[in-house]
Design a protein around this nucleic acid. Structure first.
Length: 113
DNA sequence: GCGTTGACGAGGA
DNA sequence: GTCCTCGCCAACG
């Protein structure tokens, strides 16, 4: 990735998240090398619904497994519905078995090549 | 041009 | 263990 914008890189990683898995903003940020700019990842998701192909932003939660960004979806309950549709249990805006469903790009992709 | 906000996270008390 | 503070960088008012 030479010239890819930070936003676009975020979208790219999010699209790689397998179905039924979740990750956190900070993890994505760290993967992109901008660990400190975890906020920018969340902000980038702000335009997730404007890019193509669409970004599964519902698979991205904060490091606590909380659906902090659900209010940015079409409907506050939309995010939870999408997650449950993938087999992810969500209770009180929190992903159950978060640690187990956690998906780390640097770990799963393991691109050392 | 300046101050505030924000889909976060880590570190210190 | 919880609570508070700082950093990060872009967008918005």
């Amino acid at each position: 990735m030479d010239r890819a914008d930070f936003f676009e890189q975020v979208y790219q990683v999010v699209r790689l998240i397998p179905r039924g898995r979740v990750t956190s903003y900070g993890t994505i940020a760290a993967y992109l090398g901008t660990k400190g700019s975890s906020r920018m990842v969340g902000y980038a998701m702000n335009g997730a619904h404007t890019v193509h192909p669409p970004v599964p932003a519902h698979r991205v939660v904060n490091r606590q497994g909380l659906l902090t960004g659900k209010h940015h979806f079409e409907s506050p309950s939309r995010m939870q519905e999408l997650l449950e549709a993938e087999g992810i249990a969500v209770l009180n805006d929190q992903v159950q078995h978060f640690k187990k469903l956690f998906w780390d790009p640097a770990l799963e992709l393991d691109l050392e090549a």
